[in-house]
Design a protein around this nucleic acid. Structure first.
Lengths: 112, 112
DNA sequence: TTGACACATTCCAATATGGGAATATAATAG
DNA sequence: CTATTATATTCCCATATTGGAATGTGTCAA
């Protein structure tokens, strides 16, 4: 078999840096394809293709208005990523806390 | 060009479901390759190969003890993923709050 | 109907992938 | 030194991918 297709889930869709950029650029607002083209300075087929992948995994939704298509982020589809990664947060937080303690101890040592 | 290599960053490494499973299985504990083989019931080369990818992006670290190699998760490398996805949390949380409010209203309606 | 605009799709090439099977390497025991 | 254990690497294949260029489709305006 080959690599998991990009359209398989949010993890794979978002692995591509440009698609992360696209989702961020879109953010909370609704934008037309041409607005995205201008905002990111990519060429139009590239934007359409990336939007296509994101749409297939439900990360963006499309709304047709005249000859425009307005896209918006469907953030809920990012939840599986959030849920998977969040449990690991404590590890680097713990490290930071320990580092803070060490730095605290060093300060005390200095002033003595 | 082709797709971004799996060894390019944590996002790509973790896009593969098996590697997510591997990281979770490893969790906080240090395990040898054979322990992982038994735990996950994969064949040995598969485990080694996936560990290789994770090691290249720094998601796991290796420690040699005799003829064993003990692997552990380096959770900090997951932080970029956490940082990227966290800002979107508010969107689905907002939805949940709204849903809670709706349900609350429905309850009140029922008991009246 | 014709043109112009907004966007999507197709075709191409180069490249990487993950799985299975086989084989190589390293370390220890005897 | 040899056998064995623990792990890594190589080879092969089928399959997707991204970007660029070209082309197709749908909608509005005159």
């Amino acid at each position: 078999m080959a690599r998991t297709p990009t359209t398989h889930d949010a993890f794979n869709a978002v692995a591509e840096p440009k698609r992360r950029q696209l989702i961020q650029a879109l953010g909370a607002q609704e934008l037309s394809v041409n607005e995205i083209v201008e905002l990111l300075n990519w060429n139009q087929p590239s934007v359409s293709k990336h939007l296509g992948v994101l749409k297939q995994v439900g990360l963006v939704e499309e709304r047709r208005v005249g000859r425009q298509r307005l896209y918006r982020v469907n953030a809920e589809r990012l939840k599986p990523i959030f849920d998977w990664v969040t449990p690991f947060e404590k590890y680097w937080n713990e490290s930071f806390e320990r580092l803070d303690m060490v730095l605290e101890e060093m300060k005390k040592g200095e002033t003595k």
